Computed example of a mutant assay.
Amino acid sequence: MLSHNVTMSLNSTRPGGVGGCPPVGIQLEGVVLPPVLTVDVVLGLLGNVVALWIFCVKLKSWNPNTLFLFNLVIADFMALVSLPLRIDALLRGHWVFGDGLCRINLFLMFSNRTASIALMTVVAVYRYFKVVHPHHRLNRLTKRQAVFVSASVWALVVAPRVPMLAYSHIKLPGNRTQCFFFTSYKEASRAIIILVSMHRILTVLEFAVPMLILLFCSVRIFSFLKQRQMGRPEKVRKAMRVCVAIVVVFVVCFLPTTVTTVGIWVIKSYRPWDCASFYTFTQLNIVSLGLNFLNSALDPVVYVFSSSMFRRALCGSLPRALRCKRDRDHHDKTASSSGSQSTTQQELKSIRADEGSEAN
């Protein structure tokens, strides 16, 4: 997490010597983040525990899409197990869990953001090929190949974050121990400077590139469905709502952190004397982390949108009175025959059934 002893003053307009701007303790994040992160943890645990139960107990067969979504559940749990320690530190005003847990905590928090973005991008691309290019060879992806894709994604996610585990991030401002990744206005060592720079580059790239891919896939899926559903405008409207909803969630959860990170970088590079602006952007950057982890609470909705197999398994687990009529009828019609279908057949039927209603 960004520094809790941010080195600047709201009233300062010049550099504070070799140390940068004057130090400031926990401010806005100490007030805003604890309740926000608590909501993220409660909603995230409820949704992801149910999702994990559906994946492990109710789904009798898996396909590549299901495997990608399951990896997204794992990424969410990485954040959910790390946030209680961060909430405790914010409420206390200092870190009491030692250097080892500090390193692991920060590693899990940052890895979650990267993994969530990467896996959502994989799900979107896989969905795009299923809908728009149904005969592409990627649609014949086996479960073993999907495991390889998932492992490759995790390798790309974890590799840039591993160096965080090699350095201590414990700080001792006054008599209160803090655990944060960024040092103050001026980093202390070359290694930390490189890590901070790498983190800022990753924060921007891991949002910008997947966002472009997500927009492309969403627009192409919508255009394809519009052509296929000319006589059923309601289906097209539902598909458009799905595309817009996914993009909005992506922007709400990850754009603020990206913008404030760029702001910090610009101020340090071109306005090093502007301590007030640096302080403001740093505080907003820390607070925006709460929106990052809101993604863990919203991902179960993505599972419902992205997989009819998951949706039907969830529907089949609910009391009959709570199911919508279409799902009740479909579940009753297909329950006896779904076990005999191959994984590929199930996925193809799921995609065709959901072409115009991915957000149902």
Rank of each mutant, 00 (worst) to 15 (best):
R220I: 02
K186M: 08
Y167G: 09
A166H: 03
I194A: 07
T183V: 13
A146Q: 08
L195C: 04
L141H: 02
R190T: 09
H133L: 08
F224C: 14
F180P: 11
L215M: 14
V204L: 00
H133T: 11
L214T: 05
S184Y: 06
I193W: 09
S152H: 12
Y185V: 07
R220S: 12
V132T: 00
C179K: 00
A166F: 04
L165M: 11
P160R: 05
T183C: 13
L205N: 12
M198H: 03
K130D: 11
H133A: 10
I192W: 13
V204T: 07
V149T: 05
R127I: 02
A124R: 15
A159T: 11
L156G: 09
M164E: 06
T142I: 00
V219K: 12
V122L: 12
R140L: 07
N139C: 04
L138C: 10
R200M: 01
L202V: 13
P210G: 07
V158Q: 06
F181L: 06
I194E: 04
S152G: 10
V153K: 08
K130T: 00
A188Y: 12
H199S: 15
A124S: 10
V158F: 08
M120L: 11
P160S: 11
V162T: 09
V158D: 09
Y126F: 10
K171E: 13
F180R: 11
R144Q: 12
H133C: 03
K186C: 11
A191G: 00
L214Q: 11
P210Q: 01
T121M: 12
F222N: 10
R200L: 01
F180Q: 13
L215F: 07
S150T: 06
E206T: 09
V157H: 00
H169P: 07
V157P: 05
F181A: 02
S197Q: 10
T177C: 03
I193F: 06
H169M: 00
Y128A: 06
V125W: 07
L141R: 02
R127N: 04
I194R: 01
V158W: 03
V132K: 00
M164I: 09
L195N: 05
V209W: 02
T177A: 08
Y167A: 14
L156Q: 12
L212G: 15
P160D: 13
M120P: 10
V123E: 08
L212V: 04
A191L: 05
V147R: 15
W154K: 07
K171C: 07
V209N: 08
V204S: 10
K171S: 13
V149W: 09
P210F: 03
N139L: 00
F216E: 10
E206L: 02
H169N: 02
V147D: 15
I192R: 05
V122Q: 09
V204A: 00
L212M: 15
S184A: 15
L141G: 02
V157N: 04
S150R: 07
Q145S: 03
F180W: 10
V131R: 08
F148Q: 12
L205R: 07
S197H: 06
M120R: 14
A151T: 08
F181M: 05
R176V: 06
V157I: 01
I193V: 10
I213W: 09
F207Q: 03
A159P: 01
K171N: 10
C179I: 03
Y167L: 15
M211R: 13
Y128R: 04
H135A: 12
F148L: 15
A188Q: 15
L138E: 09
F182W: 13
G174K: 14
Q145G: 09
Y128P: 03
M198G: 08
